[in-house]
């Protein structure tokens, strides 16, 4: 099981790694991705059922009926999640996913594009209130254009025009407040 999990980490697209030292352990799993998802969800549901629900949901000292408790439904849901995670693990062990149109798989692109996209997301969350909607919008949009990269120079005009237009639309037409200017 541990071999299979490690093998999956080495190959995140869910394909069995044939050059791995213990091939048989991996081969025995019919769908590595389902198996790993099941393991992760099993751990999550165990943490929920045994730690989070008892410690982070307050319960009144006297209850007319245990089903009225604030913990009742989260408890049931956690244990059901645990049961279905086990089923997913079994599904991963026993059922092969032969679908040719498996939407889970795709060909990865350059890491640079992805990293710049993450940077653009961070610009939004870290500077939205301090720099304002317009400036963060311009900065993040320019970053995303560069990530692709967009080579037509005049398209960069959209990176300025859209944040300005959409912010003004939100604030002035739809009466939805957004931070306009820095600080």
């Amino acid at each position: 099981m541990i071999f299979a999990f490690t093998a999956f980490l080495a190959c995140p697209r869910g394909e069995a790694v044939m050059s791995f030292s213990d091939d048989r352990a991996v081969k025995r799993i019919k769908d590595t991705l389902d198996f790993t998802t099941g393991i992760v969800l099993l751990v999550v549901s165990l943490v929920l059922a045994l730690y989070l629900v008892p410690n982070y949901i307050g319960e009144p000292p006297i209850l007319q009926n245990p089903m009225m408790s604030p913990r009742w439904l989260p408890n049931i849901v956690s244990w059901l999640m645990l049961a279905f995670s086990v089923l997913l693990i079994l599904q991963g062990l026993l059922v092969t996913n032969k679908s040719e149109n498996d939407e889970r798989k795709f060909i990865k692109g350059s890491l640079r594009r992805f990293v710049i996209m993450v940077m653009a997301l961070l610009v939004y969350v870290l500077f939205f209130e301090t720099l304002g909607a317009i400036l963060t919008g311009i900065l993040a949009t320019v970053l995303l254009f560069l990530a692709h990269p967009v080579r037509t120079w005049w398209v960069y005009g959209f990176a300025v025009a859209f944040p300005v237009a959409v912010t003004l639309l939100f604030v002035n037409v739809m009466n939805v407040p957004l931070p306009l200017m820095p600080y």
Binding site: A120, L121, Y124, V125, F128, E129, A133, T136, G137, A140, T141, L144, F145, H148, V150, V155, F158, A159, F162, P163, V166, T167, F170, V176, P177, L178
Partner: peptide, 22 residues
Amino acid sequence: SILFPIVLMFCVYGAYAVNNAT
């Protein structure tokens, strides 16, 4: 490549507008 940066901007503005909170 032009569309998605603009869509992301709508996403962020829309999410923030609910409670005015980062």
